[in-house]
Design a protein around this nucleic acid. Structure first.
Lengths: 343, 343
DNA sequence: GTGAAAGCGCTAACAC
DNA sequence: GTGTTAGCGCTTTCAC
């Protein structure tokens, strides 16, 4: 790799100090009263030698990398892919670059990733965490490390965070299903079951059903391990089907679960929604075009990204994590399509 | 932020030199004949003071960041999201971290991103480029900067690259459609039209039709600007429909185009495949569950990622871009579903 | 076996 | 006003 021209090359060839050159590069020359002529000489030489400041060295000196981290469970999940794209845009527009990590819901991996990113001296972190309590992040807050939790939340957390009205969304789903006249319900969830979004969605759903005096029996509370969603759901659905134990309606708790459910129900020749109705949390474009089209609770991914980046930038610019907890909860909406209509 | 303990803290508190500490940290102590006891003392002190080496400072010194860049047109596109996820995994397993950038097919933005990433001293780059020739990358090769082009290719390029048999995939699509007995065809493509994947897919399709003496009239060669796919396709399809000019079959050139086509055809109450058949390049999971299910050419995203990362790592470890051009072309397959079956 | 010194490229703080 | 010196945290070379 051709050797790069550095600040001292241009300083030497001009017979001035590196500091002087640095000043004109950073537009601080005027403020320091460097003569216009010296400045011009420097600038000319910079052009002549095609000097490009080494951002990395600058970062090292200044302690700021203009890089942020984004950690989610799986970047290829539509929901997170959209968020990643939005955050990347905000970052780019503000001179930041983003490092992305997927945890696969593995807490140890997540912690390693955070540690690595901090070692790499990222300026801040946006994360949808797989951990089950706020301890780690509260420590991060105390250490003054800029970060914001998205999507999932913890009790007693001090970190800035932006999430969505999971409880309310689940209630919308339940109310809709009840109104349609369904009377038996299953929930398809994800484990590990400490994940706040999942917990809140379950609670919102069961609470609402409870008010209508409807209970969900344990066999219809289906929780699938993250890394075997598809296969496990296949088994569970098959065995329920064999025993003639399928519920009238199923509430799936994220877009992967919804897709998987759709797939296996179809495979079993179960008609949706005639035999079993389906509504999912988290809407994605394809649900409009599946057969049948799928009802879902829509999340405002663009707002999540926007608020998260804003909160992060505030912390970075304040030089530390903000003392006051900043919590943003965004509304969701229900999109009713064919899959949840009673026939 | 609590001040971090540095290498000199532990050197001082032990009354040894920083160099010594550095040696034991990097497992070079034995090779240098540092006594086992001294090593132990150092290690104990490291644990006692909870010293964590500053990776960033090390990177600065050593000139290696263990970070690679991944640049694609849009990370929220399923195809690239999958690739990103796979590459991230390979990277993680090899101690690398990945910075992701989306170009929106904007060449200037892409060049700025490459420049920024190089300034940030990434060790290498994997890119699906939006540029229209190999000049920029050949310069990168000459400069010895490790990089591999994926997905899209250029004539006369020296860079390592991994792509897919676009021509052959398109031929499969054409042959299948012909065999079904369709006789008029449209192609839905993407502009800018210098994109190699698009060009090759068009050529593979038209060549194959040509051999059967079938031509595609200009009005059925639909090319949509990247940022207005959906709206433009809506217009074009509407006007063709109004004039009763829809073809019997449509070949869509990527998964976004396929989805959009599906959507607007459905909106116009055009029956698929009875009125118009559809087959797309690039398969995604949902095509199995849409109404109708969609035929597609499947690309081996996992292999693309694997080969790309392997080629990149080779270059990084060789200290420079490999002299010999390394080209990998992966096979594709055709998945025939309902949307392309003649009735 | 171990240490001292130099220096990666840059900038903040401090002289003259 | 106009400059320079010191040093970020680390590794590497070489001297003892």
């Amino acid at each position: 790799m051709a050797k790069r021209v550095s600040i001292s090359d241009i300083a030497e060839s001009l017979g001035v100090s590196k500091a002087l050159v640095s000043l004109v590069i950073n537009d601080k020359a005027d403020a320091h009263g460097i003569s216009a002529e010296t400045q011009k000489r420097v600038r000319d030489k910079i052009r002549e030698l095609n000097y490009q400041p080494d951002l990395f060295a600058r970062s090292f000196r200044v302690g700021k990398t203009n890089t942020i981290g984004l950690i989610v469970s799986d970047i290829s999940n539509r929901f997170y892919a959209r968020i990643a794209r939005d955050i990347e845009d905000h970052a780019w527009n503000n001179g930041y670059t983003v490092i992305i990590c997927s945890t696969d819901e593995n807490v140890e991996k997540e912690m390693k990733q955070i540690k690595l990113l901090r070692d790499r001296k990222i300026d801040g972190l946006i994360i949808s965490s797989s951990q089950d309590n706020s301890d780690y992040f509260n420590k991060l807050s105390e250490a003054g490390f800029p970060h914001v939790l998205i999507d999932r939340r913890f009790d007693d957390m001090q970190s800035a965070n932006v999430s969505v009205d999971n409880y309310g969304g689940a209630r919308l789903a339940a109310e809709h299903l009840l109104k349609q006249g369904f009377s038996s319900f299953a929930v398809v969830a994800l484990s590990p079951d400490h994940i706040s979004t999942i917990r809140e969605r379950i609670k919102g759903f069961t609470d609402t059903l409870g008010k209508a005096n409807v209970q969900i029996p344990p066999c219809w509370l289906i929780s699938l391990p993250f890394d075997r969603i598809d296969k496990e759901l296949d088994n569970r659905l098959q065995s329920l089907h064999r025993q003639g134990q399928l519920p009238e309606a199923i509430f799936t708790l994220n877009n992967n679960l919804t897709s998987s459910c759709l797939k296996h129900l179809t495979k079993l020749s179960v008609n949706i929604p005639e035999d079993v109705a389906v509504i999912g949390f988290d809407d994605i474009m394809y649900f409009e075009h599946t057969h049948p089209s799928v009802s879902a609770i829509g999340q405002p991914t663009d707002r999540i990204s926007e608020e998260a980046f804003k909160l992060l930038l505030q912390q970075i610019n304040n030089g530390k994590a903000d003392g006051r907890q900043r919590s943003v909860v965004l509304p969701v909406d229900i999109i009713i399509r064919e899959s949840s209509i009673k026939h």
